[in-house]
Design a protein around this nucleic acid. Structure first.
Length: 201
DNA sequence: ATAATGATTCGCT
DNA sequence: GCGAATCATTATG
């Protein structure tokens, strides 16, 4: 399938993009090893009004500046000193919007993913969760600001049929209780009854 | 320069 | 269910 285009990523409505990313296929190729997974869980983050967004009130710092780039690059940062979290930057240049990818259904390179995770059996903990799915895909924060559109990019997303609306669920985002009224916003989207979604079953 | 704090995960109780 | 692991980023002095 073809890759998603700049037009897909650079739309203004990040919440819609978070929904549209469900079902698409995230690829990486590092050291000749191709791995891919079907996106089954996302969360939208949108400055300036979203208190859960790192760029709340359009705070433009050395870390958050990536989110201000035009849609179609990766925003990757270290969380809790341990986990590298992968986001897709969305919206036009100057809009600090991003979509966090939280869960993947493994599609290709499963052996490589299991090696990276030090797993010897295929189980949901391989890629269900934003920190672990990044590890399985070989994504680290040094790839922050990497383009998903460049022909030679090691990270890209391919198009795929959209999720059946019946299969899509929404709810509050995870781990953002500190964000006051924004914590309740239903900006987390996931495939119903999918074992590769991080939280419930 | 220092101190507080996470968009998490895993192991133990 | 609870708490440690672990460090870049951020705010503050």
């Amino acid at each position: 399938m073809p890759r998603l285009t700049a037009g897909f990523y650079q739309r203004e409505d990040t919440v819609q993009i978070a929904k549209d990313l469900l079902g698409k296929i995230l690829f990486t190729q590092f050291d000749g090893q191709v791995t891919a997974g079907r996106i089954v869980e996302t969360e939208a983050y949108k400055a300036p009004e979203d208190k859960a967004c790192h760029a709340y009130l359009n705070r433009n710092t050395n870390r958050t500046k990536t989110m201000f780039l035009p849609g179609g690059v990766a925003y990757i940062y270290l969380c809790y000193g341990i986990h590298h979290l992968f986001n897709v930057v969305t919206g036009p240049e100057g809009a600090a919007h991003a979509v966090l990818v939280r869960g993947l259904e493994p599609v290709e390179g499963v052996e490589t993913m299991m090696l990276r995770r030090k797993h010897d059996r295929l189980k949901p903990q391989l890629t269900a969760g934003p920190g672990v799915m990044s590890m399985a895909m070989g994504i680290y924060k040094q790839y922050d600001a990497t383009s998903l559109l460049a022909p030679d990019s090691p990270i890209w997303i391919e198009d795929a049929p959209p999720l059946d609306p019946e299969e899509m669920k929404a709810g509050p985002r995870i781990g953002v209780d500190y964000a006051e009224e924004c914590a309740a916003w239903p900006w987390r989207f996931y495939q119903k009854d999918c074992r590769w979604v991080s939280r419930p079953r």
